[in-house]
Amino acid sequence: MDPKLRDVSQLFERFKAAFVRNDYDTCTNLLSQLKVLLTEFRSLPPLFEETPNAVHELTLARDIYEHAVVLSVKVEDQDAFERDFFQLKPYYTDGRNRLPSSPQEYPILGLNLLRLLVQNRIAEFHTELELLSSIALENPCIKHAVELEQSFMEGAYNRVLSARQTVPHDTYVYFMDLLAKTVRDEIAGCSEKAYDFLSISDARQMLLFSSDQELLEYVKEEHPEWEIKNGSVFFQKAKESAPCKEIPSLQLINQTLSYARELERIV
């Protein structure tokens, strides 16, 4: 066996051991060493050279990056997640003909979709979605993310929240928690516009707080303009009055002048 390959495998074993122990500091250290070592293999993307150990090296590298992605979720580092995911992606797309597919592929792709959703990068979410085959779309991990996005767009927020109980993979919980925060803000924004007032207990239920105290704190911090009296939350609707009260004179003058100028040019 190639000595370089053996070094990497051994190091990776140590990494996995630390990973199981939930010793994330050691993991991060080992990971950066591993990444440096990986740069020496010429069979990896973007070169994809046909070396004798190519398949073995590719599989190992993919395995390492898959762990890296999961690790970044565990240490809750979204930037690292993005970096590692992009390093991993060529193995799934360009390496498809060279490698047997990985069992981790769909969970990780689904995780990435979820991340884009949480970060509200919907355009990228859909771009990624287009890359998936119809078989992939049927996979529970992917489907989970896709359905979340739909419910989110529709406004069926309680479906988003109940999806937390049905996560297909335990790494998803981190993003689901983040999503819950986003959902709460969304609900608050919607309620503000849709209701005149809500009783405190209803508001608590709707905004998913376990106690009235938490609700009051939240209102104080995020929405100081809400008024709480008689056991209800009143939303001060700064309703933009539909009928126009004053004539936007400056704008009108500008427009009329520009028409005059243009007409002069024509005549």
């Binding site: 406004g155 309680n158 919607c190 516009k193 209701y195």
Partner: peptide, 15 residues
């Protein structure tokens, strides 16, 4: 839970 769904969907549509 259709009623709760409907409620939040309507709320979002209003917003």
């Amino acid at each position: 839970n259709p009623v709760a769904d409907a409620e939040s969907i309507v709320a979002k549509a209003i917003r």
